[in-house]
Write a protein that binds this DNA or RNA. Structure first.
Lengths: 191, 191
DNA sequence: TTTTAGATAGACTGACCTGTATAGTTTCTA
DNA sequence: TAGAAACTATACAGGTCAGTCTATCTAAAA
């Protein structure tokens, strides 16, 4: 395996488990079994490694979502596939200590003006856009005039609130509950 | 003002704005205009200062809530007072950079087994207990057999999801929207 | 076979980290 | 007014931080 990938793997695990600021360069390269210069040949600084980490987490989630989306047959199932992907994410990290959404956690430990917060914001906006798209389809399919914006906002609160509380409790239960609530919310929107 | 209070003020601001791990002892004592020994005479370690910070944030919120609760006349208004307190919190920090819930942020930057995470969990449970109490009253008052647990869970997702996204966007808008959604949710629960 | 790119180990810098030790000063209070 | 308690400034220890430098090695490409 290339040094860059080893680094991303090690950093991915450590950043997620210990937090970014609390994780030092030396810990990362030791876990990756890589020389320090290999880090600085692939990334110009720790910040750049952090940026790569954030991007990777997001792509990882998008892949989980794509998998779930393929299996979704109804338009409601497509909306709920977003919740499924959150659940998959939660459960994939359960054994080594689930700690919530890596992106929200990263943003939470950065100062207000940190560039990392901006990219997390963009990623969450992308999730919101996905929600909007599939909710739109769902509503038009059922000829509902339910307010799209408030539905999307509502679902995004269920999503992020549940993953946050799930992380705090180190369990995916809350995400499962959020999915159920989202389900009945969607049902209510076409009645 | 006593050194202990000066320290709690300075640490409170710095921890909230910059994150806990990223804030050093020296930065805190400089901002507090206090000698280093004053810190270690009042707190045995940085961790103890962090614990005090977390406790203080929680008490601060409880006070905001008490104020709102007093003004609430209906049982629905009492439930919504919890959302109002979140909004007050968001807006009180707006000028110097709102960054979400200090407790959730603190938990987010700590390793899975950190004691800080446990106390944050306890505080969030207290909020949930308040939600439960006032929802209970609301439902019985209106002779509703709406499921209490799912209502409370739902509201807690709206609460924590909105404060998290609000922090990411440095605006209290999301919390206001969450309150509106909570309002109609409560209305729906007694129909 | 020679060149080149990627990797290695490890020493090093200078700044910053938490926490301690010492000694002098202010402030409250009995 | 005398003593105790709280506070100050400063220096220091021992560690860790991000990042640089050098020198060596290996493997694939030219």
């Amino acid at each position: 395996m290339k040094a860059r990938d080893k680094l991303l793997n090690a950093a991915g695990q450590l950043f997620y488990e210990q937090g970014i600021t609390a994780t030092g360069i030396d810990t990362i390269i030791t876990k990756a079994s890589v020389a320090k210069m290999s880090l600085y040949n692939n990334f110009s600084s720790k910040s750049e490694l952090v940026a790569a980490y954030i991007e990777e987490r997001h792509q990882e989630w998008l892949q989980l979502f794509e998998l779930r989306l393929k299996k979704a047959e109804s338009s409601k199932a497509k909306v709920l596939a977003i919740f499924d992907a959150y659940q998959d994410h939660a459960e994939s990290h359960y054994e080594r200590g689930f700690r919530g959404c890596g992106l929200l956690n990263a943003a939470a430990e950065m100062p207000v003006d940190a560039p990392e917060r901006k990219s997390v914001r963009l990623h969450k906006q992308e999730v919101q856009t996905l929600l909007e798209k599939h909710c739109q389809e769902y509503l038009t399919e059922h000829n509902s005039n339910f307010d799209l914006n408030s539905l999307v906002t509502h679902l995004s609160f269920l999503l992020e609130g549940s993953i946050m509380l799930a992380g705090l409790e180190a369990s995916s239960d809350k995400v499962v509950q959020a999915r159920q609530l989202a389900d009945s919310l969607l049902e209510g929107a076409i009645k």
